[in-house]
Design a protein around this nucleic acid. Sequence first.
DNA 1: TTGATAATGATAATTATTATCAATAAAGGC
DNA 2: GCCTTTATTGATAATAATTATCATTATCAA
Lengths: 146, 146
Amino acid sequence: MNSTVLDQMLENWKTALHQQGYRVTQPRLQVMEIVASSETPLTPQDIYQRSLEMDSPPGIASVYRTLEMMDELGLIQQIHQPGGCHAIWPALDGHQHLLICTSCGKMRIVDGNEEITAYLSNIEQQTGYQVDEHWLQLFGVCQDCS
Amino acid sequence: MNSTVLDQMLENWKTALHQQGYRVTQPRLQVMEIVASSETPLTPQDIYQRSLEMDSPPGIASVYRTLEMMDELGLIQQIHQPGGCHAIWPALDGHQHLLICTSCGKMRIVDGNEEITAYLSNIEQQTGYQVDEHWLQLFGVCQDCS
DNA sequence: TTGATAATGATAATTATTATCAATAAAGGC
DNA sequence: GCCTTTATTGATAATAATTATCATTATCAA
């Protein structure tokens, strides 16, 4: 992310805060700058650690508060990585794609793996990456709940 | 998940433990039964809470230990839900699919959204669910790292 | 410049997870 | 079926992450 793009992103974010009636404060700017300029996804703790190298760094509580606000405004997204999260489900045969009802929590397996496999091959060719793993999870409302 | 399927799953899991030299203990069976019979993904804490209704429930440490073991054996998978995890990334325009290098952590956006959109329509028709949200994340090794 | 108040920092409280270690129970050999 | 070995457990301490509290501070509209 080059400097111009970064500046643009920060400007957009500041505008979003203003539009929603949030104050543009020093701690918020510091967190936003770290998030915008990172090459990799960062945890709140990562962000706090990096902020400590700045002059008068924000408190840890402000880091969390700023991230929560940015999430509400849709300025950031959460990235889910292997080894990260916590909910458990039996591993049935092979790789599966899950459809979770956001109302009742029920899950079901969806098929159509061939289409995804084809999609992944395309991606590998386009990017030169070797894709070892993928997650596809769908969230929606089941017939019982809608 | 009906009773026969559940029993079969528990049998398979017990066999897996034996084959890997793990003992089949009461606490492990209790955790496995809860996981196998649940209609929804459960957190370790959920599982612990449910276990408290059983006779001589396992300690919380055994719940974590059992889940860790089951994960190593591939008996369970982790489910990642909105609001759950912790790594942060700027939300760029619209919905995006992310390709993360498991070696250096770098991310890139992949395209091909049309294919995924078509796939999702199929799913909606097949299942009757209204799919509101989806996550597709790819993990692999980038050219620099391989 | 000032006043109202949103936001902050410091820190306490809460929650989740992992580590420790003496006591216990699973499983193979008899 | 009973021993013996030792993997596993439970209780709990330690660690880590997140959230809540509240007096003080800084933003920003007037």
